[in-house]
């Protein structure tokens, strides 16, 4: 049943997304939960909220969003902190948090296996968990990771080995309404032209992911509609 489609288009881009899967509502305690799988990379996300907020963290006109990334081994480091911030800022951009003032939203992301494109997997899992929790959002978002190999070839959704061999690594969060870039996180050196190329690729790839979101939600509510 599994087929590998390795297509190199004429431009020299190796634009494939690994097989991806998602399961929603798999934990009983959180208000919303999801697991997102991209190839071997898998992430578990849980959302609590809107709930009571600590006075020190209270914001008077919107909900306080807290993002926690849990590593598999050991304590979270600076890298996780920066990823938390990337995810939080993306989520804040898409959530309509002003509808729940003075409340707290907590998003917990647990790494289950890291095989590259982890940040984009975090973003996708977060979006699915928010959908499961039924929180109001102005748009959906997804994450796409592009790696630029040493020969200039752009690889989307790279594995850990491809990431290691790459010259630059770019992750974008794309919104679903206008396909605009909500967040970008880059590593390594690349030209302006390559950046634009990667954004264009991510925008195209995001359509596939949003299509997947749509199908999974359709499937989920197929019995209630």
């Amino acid at each position: 049943l599994r087929t590998t489609m390795e297509v190199c288009s004429s431009d020299g881009f190796n634009v494939t997304l690994r097989e991806f899967g998602c399961e929603q509502c798999l934990l009983s305690r959180p208000d919303g939960s999801s697991s997102f799988i991209q190839g071997d990379t898998s992430v578990l996300a849980a959302v609590y909220g809107p709930a009571e907020v600590k006075v020190s963290k209270e914001i008077y006109d919107r909900a306080t969003l807290e993002v926690v990334i849990q590593t598999k081994v050991g304590l979270p480091s600076v890298k996780e902190r920066s990823q938390e911030q990337c995810v939080r800022e993306t989520c804040e951009a898409s959530l309509l948090s002003s509808l729940h003032p003075r409340s707290s939203l907590t998003l917990i992301l647990q790494v289950l296996h890291n095989d590259g494109s982890l940040l984009s997997c975090f973003l996708n899992a977060a979006c699915m968990a928010f959908m499961d929790a039924g929180l109001p959002m102005s748009c959906l978002f997804c994450g796409v990771t592009c790696a630029i190999a040493s020969d200039g070839q752009v690889i989307t959704d790279p594995t850990a080995t491809q990431e290691k061999e790459s010259r630059a690594l770019l992750t974008f969060a794309i919104d679903s309404t206008e396909q605009k870039v909500l967040m970008s996180s880059t590593k390594g050196s690349f030209s302006v032209h390559e950046l634009q190329e990667c954004i264009a690729i991510s925008q195209m790839a995001s359509e596939k992911i949003f299509q997947f979101y749509r199908e999974s939600v359709q499937r989920r509510y197929s019995k209630t509609l």
Binding site: R2, L17, E19, F20, C22, E23, T156, Q196, I201, M204
Partner: peptide, 19 residues
């Protein structure tokens, strides 16, 4: 509640030009 997609390709046309 679960769905799985096989590996997909993204169609690209005129990408270099666009960039």
């Amino acid at each position: 509640t679960a769905l799985k997609n096989l590996e997909t390709t993204v169609e690209m046309t005129d990408l270099t030009k666009q960039a």
